[in-house]
Design a protein around this nucleic acid. Structure first.
Lengths: 331, 331
DNA sequence: CTGAAAGCGCTAACAC
DNA sequence: GTGTTAGCGCTTTCAG
């Protein structure tokens, strides 16, 4: 059996109160008592019981990460940073996958898998703003990405409009004139995709160029591959594709290369997220690099900050990472 | 405030005992009582308090996944399957990253982040078998990969020797004669890498071919890239590389292509793990595909099975996934 | 079939 | 500075 406060108290000849004081670093303990108790603590290998602490009214030490899927490289990298950052703040990260299913997203927002959590970090896919409304004593929640939640909730995102504009402008500057966008999700109220589409359109309008938009069902490599096949099959004369995720871009690039297109000579490909795969792709992928550590920190800052305040929109830095997949047309 | 059993009991005019019976599906409750209680339960939106349940002596509903890093595609995919499978069994998955640090691995084996967990799924990197010894009342633990734990612990792995032999034999059959192995970790007691090396050596010996072994520090793309640069710089005349992970292979292939080598014409590249990146790489990567869902299930089966029994070694299926990166020499 | 009550391990209000 | 104790919400033994 694991040692309890009582065991330690009995062995050290003090009361549980004193042991509790020592464990929690309460200052009013005589130095020699503290030392004696500490020795017994070590001897018995005392570990506080998280369930009891939590039951007593404290925090559970758990943060839930609610995302479509952990296997996606972007979420994997983000989860890594979140887990590191959470640990620094004494939290442990719990992973809950929604598979992008609205029903399951709703379910997990309520009670995350039966676990009482101190906070939720949610990247919704299919939920509408109305679904995101929270009860009065629900755990604090922070959204990842733009959600148009009408300012009702904290969220952390990069400036997607600006980022998309930068990518598109970059493609234009390297001499591309027929630039397709792969990634709109018109069937979902997915504000992140909407913002990226907005930036893309702005840049094209500014340059007086026509656009071509290829919607996708999900953001996987397979969807990017399908989109590229569609473009090729339709005989679309595009000389660049801007994909709303690196996964889409890698899928698209794969199909393009298989079809004998040279990237970037015949077709420039740009992505979004700066996941590691892109860096080592052949050719390496131009992409928007969000400050992922910044996102992780900002999200946890929101959960840490329990002070009553208006929900805030945290904009995290990003930059354009230019690699060979969009090198200038002229070889 | 969330509703408690007492609230429900008071409102339904019964005792907490009866409410508890209804909640936990205890059979001996009069149908009409059950119905009345259920109505109040729904009305009040009762959710059992996990901390209290756990404190009372039950399970915490938490499983810890202890891995080097969740951002690695292999662990990301595996974590996805584990999370799905865990959920089916009423568990929630907790992610704990070790960064491959022995000290941290040891720490997490003891008490996973202060949380009491019902089980641990551990992929050790730097720990020796001795470190893995468990106390009598520690949570059940299952190891991923081969660990030479001397049969002291449950572990789940594929047959790494056979798999490595198959890859190497395949390379030989496609006409390669100077096949390097990228991935041994002689400085670690990492039995998984040892087994793969063993299979590689066996296949070469059988064919009477010489080998070349390039050790690596980690299994990342960057390490594979470094290994490839080393081979090229050394003027090594290799016509194939077998990498002990897809990440290594993708890094190696990247550098090879950058250096003007044609894959597979000049150099065949094979990996291990069958992560999605490899499928969409240019060219697509030949790899060993472990049954990841099978691994997830087997690991959770071990944790589910609390019956006293000898630790078991669970071998999960794998197959060789042949793709373009190792197509025959003759074009 | 249902009620009363003990107690899981901890924190903190209240004594002294 | 330290001891005593109530009680967090739940399950479960013991009575009825």
């Amino acid at each position: 059996m694991a040692a309890t406060l009582r065991d330690v108290a009995a062995r050290a000849g003090v009361s549980v109160r004193t042991v509790s004081n020592v464990v929690s670093g309460f200052p009013l303990v005589a130095p020699q008592t503290r030392e004696r108790v500490q020795r017994v603590l070590d001897e018995l290998g005392y570990r506080p019981n998280a369930a009891a602490r939590h039951l007593r009214g404290g925090r559970s030490g758990l943060i839930a990460l609610v995302i479509p899927e952990i296997a996606s490289p972007y979420f994997g990298e983000l989860a890594g940073h979140l887990a590191d950052e959470a640990e620094k703040r004494g939290w442990t990260l719990l992973v809950q996958q929604t598979g992008g299913d609205a029903h399951r997203e709703r379910e997990l927002l309520g009670g995350a898998g039966g676990q009482a959590v101190d906070g939720l970090i949610v990247s919704p896919w299919a939920l509408s703003p109305a679904d995101l409304r929270r009860g009065p004593d629900a755990a604090p929640l922070v959204l990842l990405g733009e959600q148009d939640a009408g300012g009702l909730l904290d969220h952390v995102a990069i400036d997607n409009v600006a980022a998309a504009r930068e990518v598109t402008t970059h493609l234009i500057q390297t001499g591309r004139t027929r630039i397709a966008a792969v990634g709109p999700q018109p069937h979902l109220s997915n504000a992140t995709a909407d913002r990226r589409l907005e930036g893309y359109r702005e840049a094209l309008a500014e340059a007086g160029l026509p656009g071509r938009e290829v919607p996708v069902a999900r953001l996987h490599r397979a969807d990017g591959a399908a989109a590229m096949r569609e473009l090729i099959a339709a005989g679309a004369e595009v000389d660049a594709v801007f994909c709303f995720s690196d996964q889409l871009a890698l899928g698209a690039m794969h199909v393009a290369v298989q079809h004998g297109l040279r990237v970037p000579a015949d077709l420039a490909v740009a992505g979004f997220d700066d996941v590691e795969d892109g860096r080592y792709a052949n050719p390496p992928l131009t992409t928007v690099a969000p400050d992922k550590v910044g996102i992780a920190r900002a999200a946890l800052d929101c959960l840490d900050d329990r002070s009553p305040r208006e929900p805030a929109r945290h904009i995290v830095a990003h930059h354009l990472e230019i690699r060979a997949s969009t090198a200038a047309d002229t070889v």
